[in-house]
Design a protein around this nucleic acid. Structure first.
Lengths: 139, 139
DNA sequence: TCATATTACTTGCATAATGCAAGTGAGTGT
DNA sequence: ACACTCACTTGCATTATGCAAGTAATATGA
């Protein structure tokens, strides 16, 4: 069936996807945003993975430009910028979930087995649950 | 529920996955292997995306080391090495499919709409169909 | 059989991306 | 006013990628 797939070249959706989040940091930032519910630069920074400050700033900027997250200055403390996922960002959950499940299956990871089992048995509801926690303000 | 998710650090499955295929080329090579059914260095090379020869050699080597593909010298023409996906490699199909669907939905791509519709409506059978074409020799 | 091709790479070097330490400027708390 | 926090920049070292050319092993044709 995928005979027409042979001539995709650089407009191939996979290539486009890789241009947007095919690097070492972008999806880790998104993981912190979606699962750990981080929302500030400082939180992402102290996440434990050890992102360089300039890289973090660059990736946040690009994610905002791509419409995957939004960044809004807090009304309570004007120093703080609060980042949130957009609908486009939340729709990356299936990608992230499949990546996590693959790694948990084939590599030694620190993933809690119960969580993996839940994710694996019912991807749709796991994603729906995660998504639900952002519903009120998902752009 | 993901409260235990907060302390994943570098053993986080997402981070592990990114260390394995979180670069600009690895998944493109896998796409050619899985969808275009390419199997030789020369085919990957002429794929149109324009991989540098040293990068291609490096990625093929790493994919073999990771057990995602195998490389076997052809019995008919000993110059040719034929690469094939392993079960671990075939299990990356869900990841690739979700990435393709996300990009096709949010970005301008050259993806044939009929194919995307098929992929999207029934991911499982699309994956099964693709997988079936490798069944006889999927390590 | 012996020059010519072909396949799968290496190698060397230029350029771009990433990593690290230190610094900046707006905003806050006291 | 002063120290402090937050979200970044900046400059420079290191690493990864990109490009052109070269090489070894095998095959092909006269």
């Amino acid at each position: 069936m995928p005979a027409s797939m042979a001539d995709w070249r650089s407009q191939c959706p996979l290539n486009i996807a890789l241009e947007i989040f095919g690097d070492r940091w972008t999806l880790l930032i998104l993981r912190d945003l979606l699962f750990k519910r981080f929302s500030t630069y400082r939180e992402f920074q102290g996440s434990g993975e050890g992102v360089a400050t300039n890289i973090l700033a660059d990736r946040l900027k690009k994610l905002v430009e791509q419409g995957i997250i939004t960044g809004a200055r807090s009304t309570e403390d004007a120093r703080i910028i609060s980042y949130k996922p957009t609908a486009k960002g939340l729709d990356l959950l299936p990608v992230v979930v499949e990546m996590i499940l693959w790694a948990a299956r084939y590599e030694k990871t620190a993933a809690p087995p119960r969580l993996i089992r839940h994710m694996s048995r019912d991807r749709a509801s796991f994603i729906a649950e995660t998504r639900a926690r952002f519903e009120p303000d998902a752009s």
